[in-house]
Structures are given as C-alpha cells and as structure tokens.
Nucleic acid binder design. Structure first.
Lengths: 344, 344
DNA sequence: AAGTAGCATTAAACCGCTTTAACAAAACCT
DNA sequence: AGGTTTTGTTAAAGCGGTTTAATGCTACTT
C-alpha cells in the first residue's frame, strides 16, 4: 500500500500538503490539488485509517456493546440494531458491534481502549463494570435500559417506561378479575427487573390489594434458559399454589415455557390460566396457541433515540445526562381472560 | 487518558518493557510484570487501540459490507448477521457494520482504507467496484453471493445453489402442470439473477419445453420498491397474457405485490394463480393468505461459512479462492397448486 | 516605494504504541 | 576460570498520518 510519502514524492510536494488535500482542513490551490489527486489515484493511495485516527483522536465509528454473557440476538436486538444502523447510515458513522466473550476480554493481551468515538451499552445490570470503565476513560456513552442507581444522574439513557408498563399490565389483569398473579421476572441484577417489579406492586396497591412477594420469581442471570426457567418455575408454582390464575412472563420464550407447563398440568389458556409476556416478537407471539398477549417495546425507536443522544453528546461542548422514554403499547391477543375455575 | 510513558515512568521501567507486559510478545520477569500492571491499574491505563493497530497492522475487527444503495435490513440480513456475530464472538473479533450512504463515501475527505483485517461483501453486482478495490489493496475478502465472472476464480465466496434452487422450483411448478410461468427476477446487475434465470430456463429445457424469454422480468436496481414492482409487473403481465398460471417472485415483498395484483384481477391463489418466492421469511410468509410457498436459504449458515472462510484466509500463508455452497430447502405452504381455469 | 496582510507551502514535531538492535547480567557448559 | 547461551531490559527508530510554526510569495494599503 502506498503511503502519503509516496504520493508527496510523486507529485512533488510535501506530505503536509498531501494531507491537506485529503483532509480539506487547509486550502490548497486547485492546480496542486489536482496533481496530488492524480498521483494518489495512480498509486492507489488511500489514507491509512488508523494513522489518521491516532492523531485526530476520532474514528467516526460508534460502538454497540452487548454484555458478553448474553449473545442472545433475538428480534428485539435486531429491531434495535435496525434503528441504530439507520441513524448511522444517515450520519456517516460506521457501527462496531462489540460482543466479546468475557473470557477473551479478561486476558491481559486483549485489554485495550475501545476503537470508537462513542458507545451504546445494552442491557445494564446492577454492578455493571462497563459504565465505570467508560466514565473513567471519558468515552461518551448512552445506555439502553435504566443504568444502576449510582450512575442514573451521570449518564444519558433511553428506556421504556418499565414501571408504568408493568403497572398497566398488572392493572389489566386485575381488571379481568385476577388477584393471584405469578410474576416470572428478569434476573434480579438486571435493572429492568426492579422497575417491572415496582410497577407490578404499585398496581396491586393502587387496587387496594397486597402484592404477595413470593409470587415474584427472578430468573438466574446465567445458566438455565428462559424457556426452561419458565417451564420449571411455572410448573412448581402452579402445583404448589392452586390459586394462581395468571402469569406474567419476562420474555416470549419464558411464556412458551409457561404454556408447556400449563399443558402438562392440563390447564387451558386463557380459560384457566392467563399468560402475558413483555415482548413484541412478531414472529413467535402470533404463532402461540392461543396467540400471546404482550407489549410492543419499539426496540427500533430505542435504538434511534439512543444513537441520536450519542451523536448529540459527541457534538456538544459539555456533557449532560439526558433521559428519553419510549412509550409501549399493550398488544392484546388471545392469552388473557377472566379467571375461571381451576378444578383438578 | 494515561499513555504508556506514564506507566513506564510510574513503574520505573522503559516503555518497551511495558509494551511487552501487555502484548506478552516477550517474556518479562514476574516481579516487573506485577509492578507494571499495578501502575497501569492505578493510572487507569489501557493501550491505545489505534496506535497499536497502526504498528501491528492488524485490528481484530472484521467488516460486513453492505452495498450503499440498499439498506434494506430484512430477516435475511439479520439471520446472516446472527451467524457472523456468533463466529466473531467465538474468535475474539469485533464486527464493523459498514453501511454508508454512497453520497457520503464519494466525498474526497472520506476516502480511506477500511479499518478492518478482512471483510465480507454482501450482494455482489455485475460491475462491483468494491471487489476490485479490495483486491487492489490486498484486503482479504469473502463474498456472499456469486461474484461477477472475472473475479470468480480469484476470490472466495459463499452462496446458495441458486441455479439448482431455481431449477428445482421451476420443475416443481412444471410438475404441477404449469407451463406459462412468469419470473419476476432480481435486478439484472445482481449476479444472483443470472443464476436463477439459468435455473429457470434449464428446468424448462429439461422438461422438453421452450422457456419464453419475455416471461422473465427484472426489477430495476434502484427506484421502485420490490412490492411496487411485484404489483405493477404482475398486473401488466397477467392482463396481457391470460395464459400465465404461475409467478415466481424474487422476494416475499415482491410476492405480496403479486398477491395484491391477483386480488385486483379477481384471481384466487392458488386455484387460479400459483405464487412462489425465493424467501425464507418466517414472519411474513405464514401471514400471507394463503401462506406463501418459498425456499429456506439458511442465511445464518451463509454468514457462518463466510466468516470461517475469512478467518481461514487471515491465518493462511497464501490465499486461495474457495467456494462454499449452502443447501436450500423448498418450504411448501399453500400458494402453489395445479393450474385451474382462468376465466374472466 | 515601503509596509502590512493574506495565502500556499513546507519542515519538523508529534500522536501512542511496537519492534529492532544492543547490551548487561545471570546461567550453562567443558 | 573462560567462553558461550540464555534471559530481561532499554534506547531509538519506525508505523502513517496531522498539525504547528516558519517561510516565501503575491496582493493590498497608504
């Protein structure tokens, strides 16, 4: 590959001049510009990206960081990615998808700063090392999901209104006549689980009822798949407490587990058991029988808003912690109904 | 951000030593290693990615290049991306999604070599500047889809067996009794359209029939959406030639246009018109009424195989042009049947 | 005509790291 | 003991660009 020196020599100018021709940061006479460009073309010269980034301290690359443990790229993530990519496309940024295993990152020889101008962090957990890390190094970030409390005032983030959404759903189920509602929540450490738990409880209180703490279960962060967790915990709980008439599941896969448990127990959905999922999977949900009632999260808008915040932050003189909430909508299909008798 | 010099100073060694501690390319005594690492931690030092890449001439980033004109990120692309990401994850590579608008790329100040070790090129067209470009600069590439003829022997690529697949489908329709089969093909310039066209024709010849050239239409590369093209060309052709009893569409969106045209003309599917699409969209296809018969392309495997080839190429001493074909499967749903009367 | 301002260009310093060549100290032969 | 390896460290020379300060020019004042 030809370097800037080759081009400088070939066109009879200094490398500083060649640099200016390409970066357009300083005016160069038309005549010289043409000579340089011609030489560059014949030598197949292109400025080296890394060298340029090294000194200009900018790459026009944005990062999308996915926690290493979970490379579960479902429709939610894809939809989000779509949103992010669109904004990148429009603004001339490339997108670096950063999904590296923790095992890889923990090795000394792989430690390094990230090669991006800014980053979007997905799916924050309670003690999320990534945030501290970026704050430390001054890397602009936007989080999708609510950051853990200590950082909430320090970083910008985009989120659904998880509290409100969970409350709405719970109200909906209470309105149908349910009072014993099992909540199979996300892993405790994920911030989203706290919010949804709060919404769940508040709806109960608002209705003048006492939420029962033992009806909230959390999926473990690692290990067990969502499906297995849905199946096993629903099976156990439904067997132990015959009063339960409805289940709120965190994801569609988890809901699928619940369906399976219901089948095993001979419970008809929705007549004997209502099932709900925090999901907007247009593939799976309608395929369920009965079709799964859930909520549309608008992952693409989460992506778009996050990237906009990030770009804003890159161009702003001083940082500020902004928050954007993306509204959600209940999608009522066929898996919830008024509670019926649960005879054995 | 602290630099290597700061760490060297703080731990009382030279920067060469610090470098060796982090890169592990040269043995450093345990005692010194610890001292350096401690100093690095307290200074929040991380090696600068760009500086490192500049001299080591490697970034551990792979690129996924999408032709600028088409940022139509559908399920095919997502599935492909999933495959690619999985292999990246396992091998400690980051993925750079390169979807920049052509308008942006054409500006002088934005020309520069790509900051990746290797690249996957999606959706090649007849005169694809990207390939020549990469060959020129010595950038390792793997193409998904068949590269244009002049490059076929020079670059590695992964593809479906488009010729065989198109032949299989056409045989299937001929077997059902169709002889007048309209083929709404991909844009002429896309290499995939030539292959599918060939398969279509060969099936006719094999059955002792003459394929009619005017029954093959190509979507324009830009402009019109697939849906609009499907609708308009089907409407025109079906009106002009009442003998047509089947349509092979390039994509599901195009097939949707055909459905719409059929409805407009009062043609029932599949009784009066069979429709087929080269698509495996699990969202859309079953939603069609009747459900759309198509073909499963296994985009994720395309991605996985492409990335494997790329990694192989990066590690190999000398390059070689390999080819991997990913098999496809007919997915028979409800949109094709034996031809019936097409009374007006 | 002299002085000032503006413009295009260049040489040299620098960005933060890796690597080469040189070297000292310790370990291994006979 | 003397010579040869091995091991650990360093100073200095890049990697391929950008940027700063300096330098000739030409053009504009007055």
């Amino acid at each position: 590959m030809a370097t800037i020196d080759d081009v400088a020599k070939a066109s009879g100018v200094s490398k500083g001049t060649v640099s200016s021709v390409f970066s357009k940061k300083r005016p160069i006479s038309k005549e010289v510009t043409e000579r340089v460009l011609a030489a560059a073309k014949s030598l197949h010269y292109k400025p080296n990206y890394w060298a340029r980034s090294l000194v200009s301290r900018s790459t026009r690359i944005l990062g999308l960081n996915i926690r290493g443990e979970s490379l579960e790229f479902g429709q939610f993530h894809h939809s989000l990615l779509n949103g992010v990519l669109r904004v990148c496309y429009e603004n001339g940024y490339r997108l670096l998808v950063n999904a590296l295993s923790p095992a890889y990152l923990s090795q000394v020889e792989n430690i390094s700063s990230d090669p991006v101008d800014g980053e979007i962090l997905l799916d924050p957990i309670a003690s999320d090392g990534r945030i501290e890390d970026r704050l430390q190094s001054g890397m602009p970030i936007v989080i999708i999901g609510r950051p853990p409390a200590p950082y909430e005032a320090q970083v910008s983030y985009v989120d659904n209104d998880n509290v409100g959404m969970a409350a709405q759903v719970t109200r909906y189920l209470i309105g149908l006549g349910h009072t014993e509602i099992l909540f199979l929540n996300a892993p405790v450490s994920r911030t989203v689980s706290a919010d949804r738990g709060e919404g769940y409880r508040s709806a109960f209180k608002q209705a003048g009822l006492q939420p029962k703490p033992d009806l909230i279960l959390h999926k473990p962060l690692k290990g067990e798949s969502a499906h297995a967790f849905g199946y096993e915990s629903a099976l156990a709980m439904l067997t132990a407490s015959p009063d339960i008439t409805a289940v709120i599941a965190d994801t569609d896969m988890m809901a699928l587990g619940v369906y399976k448990a219901a089948e095993r127990l001979g419970l008809r959905i929705p007549e004997q058991l209502s099932v709900f999922a925090f999901s907007d999977d247009t593939v799976l949900s309608p395929e369920f029988s009965p079709p799964l009632t859930g909520v549309r999260l608008h992952a693409d808008r989460l992506g778009v808003e996050a990237l906009k915040l990030l770009l804003e932050q890159l161009n702003a003189a001083q940082k500020s912690a902004k928050r954007v909430l993306v509204p959600t909508e209940l999608v009522i299909r066929g898996s919830c109904a008024a509670p019926g008798a649960r005879g054995r």
